[in-house]
Design a protein around this nucleic acid. Structure first.
Lengths: 106, 106
DNA sequence: CTCATTGGTAAGTGAGTACTAACGGTAAGT
DNA sequence: ACTTACCGTTAGTACTCACTTACCAATGAG
């Protein structure tokens, strides 16, 4: 679904971010992702499930192996939320600075 | 300190995001933030503490009231992390498309 | 067919955390 | 001085979640 709620929850975990970092260089099977990480392979499978439901990764079957790769959809939802919030926050912040500077002119 | 780690953890909670939404329109005291939220005022105080440590909000004293406002610093750290990841992910994605299309030329 | 490889799933456990209730501390009003 | 309003902090509790250990299904090699 790639809604912001799931993306936030998915990106909160350090291990899941490490998984994404490893997929940044290209698609990899589950075993290769798990190798080098301080957790077991089943744990990685569970993390991949969460990342997939968040729209951050997708997978394809290749024989007995499942190749995972990054899905730009989830990151797009995240950027959209952040950009919208960023803009409105900055305008509100600027408006506040304006108001407080006008208070000096009495 | 506004490192990405704390920002992720802070933004994960729905109540804290609701607090930020309320501060988006401008600075507010704690009581006014808590009013309308489905949690008690002390809970809001704890959330504000987390948001402040993440660099997402800041506060000033005004008599007996503490006025909280959004601090662009934390959102900046978030955007930096996301933009960096976004760029490298897209280039890796493009490189992969390149590779898979070359495999067709045998 | 047999066996090894790969990976998703279920159950159980431990740690982190969001919440409420109670308290203390400070500033303004009477 | 007394009271009221506003807010942060502490202690305790309930719940979520990341992890491991077992187990099972599917594919490929011999």
């Amino acid at each position: 679904m790639a809604n912001a709620e799931r993306v936030f929850a998915a990106l909160n975990d350090p291990t899941r971010r490490a998984v994404l970092e490893r997929l940044r260089d290209g698609p990899r099977p589950v075993g290769e992702i798990a190798r080098g990480l301080p957790v077991t392979r089943p744990a990685v499978s569970q993390h991949l499930k969460v990342l997939k439901e968040a729209g951050l990764v997708d997978d394809r079957s290749e024989g007995t192996r499942r190749i995972y790769h990054i899905d730009p959809k989830g990151l797009g939802a995240m950027r959209a939320w952040l950009d919208q919030f960023w803009n409105s926050a900055l305008t509100a912040f600027a408006a506040e600075v304006e108001r407080s500077s006008k208070k000096e002119d009495k």
